[in-house]
Every structure is written in C-alpha cells, then in structure tokens.
Design a protein around this nucleic acid. Structure first.
Lengths: 243, 243
DNA sequence: GCCGATTTGTCCGTATGTATC
DNA sequence: CGATACATACGGACAAATCGG
C-alpha cells in the first residue's frame, strides 16, 4: 500500500525496468503515454521519472525521450546515497545476515569523543560494538554511538536483530539523512581478530563514518563501520550538475 | 547567468546556508516567505529546496518548516553522488592540481578488456594513464578508457589539462551520469612507484571504477581511479527511502 | 481537547520554451 | 515546417502535520 500516487508509479516503472519489460537502451513510453496509462497528471509522472534519474535507472533527453540505462549488479553490494540497514542490504541481496554484539554499554562523551562523534560534550550515549556476518563470513565491525535520549528501551537483544527496525517500528522515529565519509585506515588488532584478517595479507581496510539525523533535526547516531577489504563493495550513481 | 529561475534560487539559498546567513539548526524562511522574496511560484521554490534536501543541506518537516543541517567539511574531499573532474575538485577545495600523462595510446578492446570496461568487443578506445597531483602530492592514478568515436581530437596536451573541460566546452558533449563502484585492492608496483607508497606501510588502496554516460545514452568512458589510501576521503549524503 | 493559522506534501491543469525528428 | 518529446513555470486545490490560544 504505497502512500502516494507518484511513488506507486515510480515503483511500477522501476520494476518494469528491472524485469526488462522496458528493455535496456530503449526508450520508455512517452510522458503523454504514461499519463494515460496511469491516469494521472503530467507532474506526477515527471516526479516518478525524476526519482529514476536520481537512481541512475534512466536518462532523460529533451526532444527524444527517456532511455533505460539500468544495469543489474553482479555482486553483493552496499548502496551509497541511500540509507539501508545491514539486514535490509542482506535481504535485498538474498543473503543470510547475522549480528553478534561484542559490547553494549553506556558512556558519557568526553572532549575527545565529542570531537570525533559530533555529539556535544557530556552527552549520554549508548556505545555498541557489533560484528556483522553475511552467510557466516565476518564482514563488518560497527562502532555505534546513539544519543541515549533518542533510543529509550534499546537492549542488547534488539542490537542483535536490527536497531533501525526498532527505532522505526517501535519508537516511530523517522530517519531522514546521513552524512557519510569514506576513508581507508590501518587495521587494528580488534579488526584482525574478529574479521579473521591477516596484516600480511591486508594491512588496511575501508572505513565509513556516518552522522545520521532524524526528523526532529537531531543527530542521534554516529557510526564507524570498518569493512573487510576483500569483500568491501559500494555502489553509487553520480550525476553531472550544471554550473 | 543561470539557465533557470529555480536554479538561481537554489544557488542563492545554498550560498546563504554556507555563509551562515541562515544559521545552523534554525528554520529557513517559509515557502510563502521565499515566494515573496524571489517573486516566483510555489513549485519553483519547492524545486530549489528539494535539491538542497538531496545535497544534505536542509531537511523538511511537514507542518514545521525547513531546517538547516549543513556542516562544512574540514578536509580535502571528493564528492560522491556528483560528477566532478579532478581539476574542479581541486579548485573547490582551494588547492593546486597538476596532471602528468604517463601513457596516451589507442587500443582495441579484446574479450577480457571488454568484460572489464563494459565496452563491446573490438571497440576502438583511447587508453590514458594519468597521475594526479594535489599541491604536488601524488594522489591518484587514473586509467581512463574513452570510446574513440566520442572523443575526436583528444590529445596528450588536453589530457594534461582537463578532458572533461574539452568534452563539454569544445565537443559540446553533455555528461549525464556515472555508475561507480568502490572497492579496496592490493597495490601494484606501478602504484607503489608513482604514488610513492611503501607496501610495508600500506599494502592496499581505494579503487573507484566508474562507467560514465553522455546525453546520447552512450557509455563513452570507463575509468579506474586508484587512490592513495592515506589521502583518500570521499563524502556522501544518503537519504532514507520509504518502503 | 478543540479550533484556526501556518507550513509542508500531494496532485491537478495549463501555458510556454526548447530540442529532436 | 509541423508534430512530438521533455523542461520550465505558474496558479489553484486539498491533505496532513504542527503549534498556539
């Protein structure tokens, strides 16, 4: 049950692209055609298409039409530009996720931690270390810092399943956006131990730091994700902006 | 001279956010207010704001307003979700770019290269190896493959300056979007030599593979960018999508 | 708790411009 | 040149969420 018309149109076209109903490199039906199909206004069709452009599924050409340029992904891949929980990524890729909680504790941010996380000094935060497995391969160590007042009732058991699911479905929090920074860092002994790495093999790894906001404009989460280098695979679609 | 009204409004608000004219965590003027300021329609204002949302500059809250959540970046950073040439990135960060062309040649894609680049077999391509310096530090080795028929007149001299500038300003090509895949790979002897790396220090690096399309729907470029791990710093804004 | 004012979200219809064929 | 296609812009209507009285 989609919330809006343009969203259901977006999903329908998206599905037709993925299933090759609209073939690769061919033009989609024209806007006027889609207006008739879906019995809606021009703006509504255009809104759906503009999301497909942002997704990198199609490209629009003034005077010509809208071309399908979607290519399926052939590997396990996390998606940039979109917030997905580990569990959601796994399910999208048809794989089996498992999460092990290494540490579940509450701390106060000192000056150093405050600078690193972006939380004000002396904030009460939940600090959670988790090891994520995909098909029983240890892939990611996550260091999560949640602002305590935003995650009441969070337990170790929830952290073993899906924190985002709890936040959205139980606490009815709306997660809005996340600023992410990707770097490459040296592996630590903890990484080596839990991700079953060998420093002679790989001595560094991909690190994604994210600062996540909810609909109240509060940055409620800082997370550092440390990814096993041999499995790290992120995907993104970039668009060329004028000026 | 901006092409459209909504784009000039977008840029104006963006500048006011970056310059703290609209302060962090405060609400922007309401849509009705902005309509009066810019003397335009509601849709036009909303369009400008929706781009700021995608940029991670603001977040909208139904019934409340639009909040500024922009945080400046404190480091040299490349931007995901947006296509920028090396020269443009450098200029945005106020740094000095220099490019050295290591190899400039023309080849035909064999079966193996065709699979890797995504070009059809037996395509005529320009293969260019370039070393990019920022403030005289060697940062990136780029392996560019351009479909020859799309880049007539491309020379070694142009490759030393900016290929994208040539494509857009001389050939009037419109670059549209780029699919990117980020991975971590072992460094090679070439990487070690040109990026002045030491395998005992860092034995792997960040690799960004990109497949870039122009407005004719043709994938005209495949590029593998190999980034020095100690300077690699990518930034992105992710949004939570419903359903 | 209700009501009205404000603010953003969705949707429609229309007109005009520009690029392609 | 006309027909078709997407791009920009305007204006109006109603819904949904928030906030203050």
């Amino acid at each position: 049950m989609p919330k809006s018309i343009y969203e259901s149109i977006y999903k329908d076209i998206k599905q037709k692209i993925e299933s090759d109903t609209f073939p690769y490199q061919e033009l989609l039906p024209s806007e006027n055609n889609l207006i008739q199909r879906y019995n809606c206004s021009r703006n509504t069709v255009r809104r759906a298409i503009s999301r497909l452009v942002a997704d990198g599924y199609v490209q629009t050409m003034q005077g010509k039409g809208v071309r399908n340029i979607y290519r399926p992904i052939d590997q396990t891949s996390f998606t940039l530009g979109e917030i997905e929980s580990f569990k959601e990524s796994a399910q999208r890729n048809g794989q089996h996720p498992r999460t092990e909680v290494l540490l579940f504790t509450e701390i106060k941010t000192d000056e150093k931690l405050s600078r690193r996380t972006g939380f004000p000094e002396d904030s009460e935060v939940c600090y959670i270390q988790r090891l994520h497995y995909l098909d029983e391969v240890p892939l990611i160590i996550n260091h999560n810092y949640f602002l305590k007042e935003c995650v009441p009732g969070l337990t170790r058991e929830i952290a073993e399943n899906s924190i985002y699911q709890y936040l959205e479905q139980e606490l009815h929090m709306t997660i809005v956006n996340s600023r992410r920074i990707m770097t490459v860092e040296k592996i630590t002994e903890i990484d080596e131990k839990y991700l079953e790495l060998n420093a002679e093999d790989y001595n560094c790894m991909a690190v994604v730091s994210s600062y996540t906001y909810n609909s109240n404009g509060i940055m409620f989460e800082y997370t550092q994700s440390r990814h096993r280098p041999d499995y790290f695979h992120f995907q993104d679609n970039a668009v060329r902006k004028p000026g």
